[in-house]
Write a protein that binds this DNA or RNA. Structure first.
Lengths: 192, 192
DNA sequence: CCCAAAATGTTAGTAGATAACATTATTTCG
DNA sequence: CGAAATAATGTTATCTACTAACATTTTGGG
């Protein structure tokens, strides 16, 4: 065998399944694609699919950026307001996004928007962002459920961010995402 | 051709199904309750259930207050900020809520919170509120998709309202809902 | 009472998802 | 290397949400 450590078989299977699933969703639609078909084209049984993804929807729904955002928010100076902290953290996070990451995000959100059964779940995705924001905004000593004030601000920020991202994806990524984020946060600031 | 409207029986069946479903969800859990069981206890076939509710989830997910809110927002003076208009409209709407309506809302949101499969859908429920807010906030001449600014503000407001309602339901309705709404909007104002 | 529309039932089927158990790869270690 | 241990996958059976097509009953106005 060749030298380096290749990804485990499990990881390869998972990647293959996801790749094929997204391609099929794109080609023939989400509803029209059955898990059985995805598994078949990947050369595995349908059970293998469910061992890698808890549900068909999870192939599309996933967001790995929230932990990063939580850290970035916590890194902001406490002297500025909560919304400002989130705003700045999001911009910093965007700068760290590579071109390919950005393209993958665009493709995933675009797919989400085009699938009626999943469109409503965008807010679910948003919910995990909100949780991350809550953790990032909570005072250091705080434990347990965050206060209503923190939750309200986190909810507002994640909703505003979501609006910007959706706008970006609907415009096929032609507009600058950071610019749209700025615009959305500016709108919130102006409307309070 | 005589075509009268005679809707009575259908409405009774629907009400019975909903009543029994909510009771069973409460008694034995959402997952543990099958549509077949609901139908059986209601003395109808499972097809009748699906003729009245597009899905099992829809029995719990429903919100009839959004059109009212849209109207109330539009009725606010354009001289105040967007967030202020929504805030005031929500308070007015709450005043119009009767005691029984309030209790029904509390029970429904409480059930939503206790059902893992539906908990994430709270935001979906609020998505329709967001749409109503967008319509209420949009300038009169505007048509088609609202601007990013309007969408961002509407998203933030619906998210803030959601946080307050969830807080209220989690506290078993012991706190004053209007007070919590005030607190949440105040937090947003203070964090911008 | 009559009859057309509305409401409901029957039956059969698709698809997502889980469980239990068998089988095959992969890795680890003597 | 080669066998034991472990991880990954396959088979099969089953449950449940949900839909389609067609048959049957109920409802309420003329």
């Amino acid at each position: 065998m060749s030298g380096g450590s290749r990804p485990s078989k499990s990881q390869r299977t998972r990647a293959t399944l996801q790749e094929i699933a997204l391609r099929l969703f794109d080609e023939q639609g989400y509803e029209a694609t059955s898990v059985a078909q995805i598994a078949q084209e990947a050369g595995v049984s349908h059970m293998t699919f469910f061992r890698h993804f808890p549900s068909k929807e999870e192939v599309v729904l996933e967001d790995e950026y929230n932990p990063l955002l939580e850290e970035l928010i916590r890194g902001q100076p406490a002297t500025v307001s909560g919304v400002e902290r989130v705003h700045a953290a999001v911009l910093t996070g965007l700068e760290r996004l590579g071109e390919s990451d950005r393209y993958a995000l665009l493709r995933r959100v675009g797919l989400l928007l085009s699938i009626p059964a999943l469109r409503s779940r965008i807010d679910e995705n948003l919910a995990s962002a909100r949780t991350a924001f809550e953790r990032g905004l909570a005072a250091d000593g705080e434990d347990g459920t965050p206060s209503l004030a923190v939750r309200a601000v986190a909810a507002a920020c994640s909703a505003v961010l979501s609006a910007a991202v959706v706008d970006w994806a609907q415009g096929e990524g032609e507009q600058d995402l950071a610019g749209l984020v700025d615009e959305a946060f500016r709108a919130l600031r102006g409307a309070v």
